[in-house]
Write a protein that binds this DNA or RNA. Structure first.
Lengths: 236, 236
DNA sequence: AAAGAGCGTTTCAATAAGTGAAATGCATTA
DNA sequence: TAATGCATTTCACTTATTGAAACGCTCTTT
């Protein structure tokens, strides 16, 4: 059982991914992306089109309604947590600090839905289910849509004294789905370092919903995702 | 060109739909849903699994991360408008009143992103892009997460005098994506009628992200979706 | 305990079904 | 005008999909 995979289906799903990644793509581009002949790509895209997974819009293929529907059904806090897991792990590994994922709650607050404790003996600690206000916290500001164009928020010694929180939004379409953040004891991080960390968190937040979990499924486990974030020297 | 469709891919997508619709499904159930033999369903589901579109969780197949990612990328106001189009049309057709779709804006307000004018000569009117406050309006209350368990909100003579607004949330996973509403001149609708309308709007709002656009693609145009909403007698 | 039912899984021969090169017509560009 | 690139169609080749059958397994029933 070397591979129990159906090539045709794999190719069709590859095309579907190409269409969604690019947003709008011509047949030729899609075929190139998936390394398929034009005729094969055409046939498969037509299948995807007839099932509503893509739609054709003036010689360009775009994501269809079906993919939105299925994605919407599958989207949940649980799936967000799963998707963010790798990013959280990477943040902890590269900074040694605690990393968190927050979503808006019903009552104008935010709640922690995923936690990764840092590795430093002195570290920030929180727990899943904890509520945070939308003002005075980095994650809260992000959830409130107050993230500036740089893509991240830094709050030094806000509601929680002595800690610096760095948060970035996880966007889903044009809506804020969650806030990814790293919280550091303030004495351990300078302002420039906080900016570097901000860029790192923002990049990870972006990647959560944009980078496929594994581009090449054949490549077994143990492969880190490409495009590694430059490690920040988190020294005292 | 009777059908330029790839059967294998169609079947795989059918299975994907079955998994997402049911949330968690056994191989045998998925095979039954898609009218496939167990061995074929197994092979296709494994392909979907290896590409991340479904995941296997203790003998049950569940939606995978890939579908969430692609759906998230494809989700936009534009796609919401497309998806809600049929529901809006149906509401207008069955009630004669104006129907709207609202989403939260950045500034704690809501905005109209889709409009269908009613057919009565005396009707409520609004326009795409118009802002509404989150308090004092039915759509606003829905967007603020204040919809009661019955699934809809009725506001009689709120911010806008002389009109009755009925709104229901369009849920995406566990989050409110939009508000679907019908606005009626108050003199034309009694309170019991408003409740009936509320159930109708709630049902349509639910269906926006849960009913496939067309279950059988082969069935040409001109077919109304099954499960018709009982028409309400919107007489004076 | 034994028999039965249902499930997930594997195997395998039959052939249905997908494949890609080549050709076509149509734009756009040089 | 010639050339390039694209979307599309056709078609012979054969690859890759298919489903029945068989197996081991776990429950449930008798």
């Amino acid at each position: 059982m070397a591979d129990a995979s159906t090539r045709t289906v794999e190719r069709a799903l590859l095309l579907l991914g190409a269409v969604c990644d690019r947003g709008a793509v011509s047949l030729a581009d899609a075929a190139r992306d998936a390394s398929l002949s034009a005729s094969t790509a055409l046939r498969l895209l037509r299948t995807l089109e007839s099932t509503g997974f893509v739609r054709k819009d003036e010689d360009r293929y775009r994501p269809g309604m079906r993919i939105v529907q299925l994605g919407a059904q599958a989207l949940s806090h649980e799936s967000l947590v799963s998707l963010a897991g790798a990013a959280l792990d990477r943040l902890v590994e590269e900074t040694g600090e605690s990393a968190y994922l927050n979503v808006p709650a019903d009552d104008g607050h935010g709640i922690y839905i995923a936690v990764r404790e840092g590795t430093h003996s002195v570290r920030h600690t929180s727990w899943v289910g904890r509520r945070i206000p939308l003002t005075g916290t980095a994650a809260g500001k992000v959830l409130a849509g107050e993230a500036p164009t740089c893509g991240y928020v830094v709050v030094r010694n806000g509601i929680e004294p002595d800690v610096t929180a760095v948060a970035a939004p996880v966007m889903i379409g044009d809506r804020i789905a969650a806030s990814l953040s790293v919280v550091v004891p303030s004495y351990r991080i300078s302002e420039p370092q906080a900016e570097t960390l901000g860029r790192m968190v923002a990049a990870e937040a972006l990647g959560i919903l944009n980078t496929p979990p594994s581009t090449t499924p054949a490549t077994g486990p143990g492969d880190t995702s490409p495009g590694h974030i430059t490690s920040m020297g988190a020294s005292a």
